[in-house]
Design a protein around this nucleic acid. Structure first.
Lengths: 333, 333
DNA sequence: CTGAAAGCGCTTACAG
DNA sequence: CTGAAAGCGCTTACAG
């Protein structure tokens, strides 16, 4: 790489001091002579000077970069959230570093530590939930931090997530004409808020309608075990006549199973899921889904982070923001 | 934020000089006394010291960060490529900044300039193709750069992409029993290598089989115009009996159209596309697809970038790497 | 209206 | 085996 041009080169070339060039770069023209300005301007052009942001960051203690830690960028919801965050940051002249924690708390910790060492101005995370002491420390330092999708108990960290109870209520409503609803879900853990809340919400809301959701009707397992769980579910003496698939990944397994077993939707069993999927409209039958406003949620998270960055003392935004799910009524129930 | 602990604090606390602490941090223990080592170690622990990477970057001229500029992170292929790159970088202790250029050359230029100002160690880009002078400049500076998915004519920049001609050949082979194949594609522009090559490859390979692809059988338009183009296509006196959908986004439109028009696959018209999609296996009928090894491609791009970072003089890797498409034979043709 | 000087938090020859 | 000094490329009081 050729030798980089620095502010000194520009200063010499323009016949002024580094300070003056710096003033110019930072738009503090208040007292700057017209001539000086022009000299600097043309020196910059001629030398093709571009300031070294690392040096600036060191001095200003801001890297104009934020970190986003998702469980896995391959999940559609995460991708949409990242896109919204990146758009927001781009407008502000910020960059975003993307990290995949893979639901692994060690990896999450490594990422948080490294991002901090790189002096990123803030972090938006889908927290694993297992690094409570670490989160707590960041909170105490007033380090700008926003959580997405998952609640961590007892921590006063602003969080953006779906109103999962509402989503469950909508699912119950969509399935109200069916007698034996079942739910299919990935493994349940306390800190996996979406799954927990959707399950609990579904159960409670069914109860309000005088229907109970017994454990047999809860098919729960890792993605690669779902087929087996579904098999068991449909071997019950009274198999379900409706299914609530808790997210898009589970939905895939359900559709695959239905297809393989020649179970017709909605005639044999009705189906609704959370997360819109690309093929929902032209699938046979078109799938009724409950979607999350992913872009708005991402944008909100970015906004919350920036208000913290601007004013780390401000405590007013340290709350939980629930977004409304939307029903896309189609043909599967 | 509380006052950050610096290397000076550690030095004072341990009763040694900053230099020695720095040696320790960088693992140069060669001549370091056992006691010194221990003192430093415990000082770091007690103070919870973590080095400021920005300061280190300034001195070392490496930010241990790379930039990835995609057209749009929402495209599945891009997401997969990013995931592979991020995994690779994470192993090396690097971070990745993700940027969406939206096929907009101004946006691309802004991103490249800003990434460079932030001293990222290299860039992997899905180039818009319209900033040739800029690319040229980076090349001359020997700035680490790898292109993905798209070829830019006349520039000796290492590029990773699918063997699109091979993909087209495979498509022709899969469709060999059909008489009037058509192709559906997003708008064609010289620098949009995948589309161009797949179209040309398809045409040429058909010719080898004694079939011609007349212009009427090329449905080409922006995603939101595809439905209209398909309508025209199927109003031909001799409508196609097979379709090659050039990518996943086009495929969605085709399936939507087929569904709406009650055209049966493969009885009325056979179908094959490039890019595997999540629902291919359980769609009715299961979709025959030609997929790209996205993860390997992303990994390769990262490897190429790192060899350039390690040795910017080395010219040996400045070539084009074509990856083999794979056929996933299912039921749609 | 502009410049000299100090400092951000590191690393790295070099001296001893 | 360890430390003093210079320097990476900026910014920012402060002086004049």
């Amino acid at each position: 790489m050729t030798k980089r041009i620095t502010i000194s080169d520009v200063a010499i070339h323009a016949g002024v001091s580094k300070s003056t060039v710096s003033q110019y770069l930072n738009g503090r023209y208040d007292y700057m002579g017209q001539k000086t300005k022009e000299k600097i301007e043309s020196a910059i052009k001629e030398l093709k000077y571009s300031p070294n942001m690392v040096a600036r960051s060191l001095k200003q203690k801001s890297s104009t970069t934020i970190g986003v830690i998702v469980a896995n960028i391959l999940h559609v919801f995460s991708t949409q959230v990242i896109r919204a965050i990146e758009d927001f940051c781009h407008e502000k002249g910020f960059h975003v570093i993307v990290c995949n924690a893979d639901d692994n708390s060690d990896k999450e910790k490594t990422y948080i530590d490294m991002l901090r060492a790189k002096q990123v101005d803030g972090i938006i995370a889908f927290p694993t939930g297992d690094n409570v002491a670490l989160y707590q420390g960041l909170l105490e330092e007033k380090y700008p931090l926003v959580f997405m999708d998952r609640l961590v108990d007892g921590l006063d960290i602003p969080t953006v997530l779906l109103d999962n109870y509402k989503a469950a209520t909508l699912a119950v409503d969509l399935l109200k004409d069916y007698q034996r609803p079942a739910i299919v879900t990935s493994p349940l853990k306390e800190n996996l808020t979406p799954r927990m809340e959707r399950l609990i919400g579904f159960k409670n809301e069914l109860a309000k309608h005088g229907k109970s959701l017994s454990d047999e009707y809860i098919a729960c397992g890792e993605i690669n075990e779902i087929q087996k769980k579904l098999t068991e579910l449909f071997q019950l003496s009274e198999p379900p006549d409706a299914i609530f698939a808790i997210n898009d990944r589970v939905l895939h397994e359900v559709l695959s199973f239905m297809n393989y077993q020649n179970i017709r939707i909605p005639d044999d069993v009705a189906l609704v899921n959370v997360d819109d999927v690309s093929f929902a409209e032209f699938y046979q039958p078109a799938l009724t889904t409950i979607s999350q406003p992913a872009f708005e949620m991402g944008k909100k998270a970015a906004e919350l982070l920036f208000t913290q960055i601007k004013n780390p003392q401000d405590i007013s935004t340290r709350e939980t923001f629930r977004f409304e799910p939307m029903v896309n009524r189609r043909k599967s129930c």
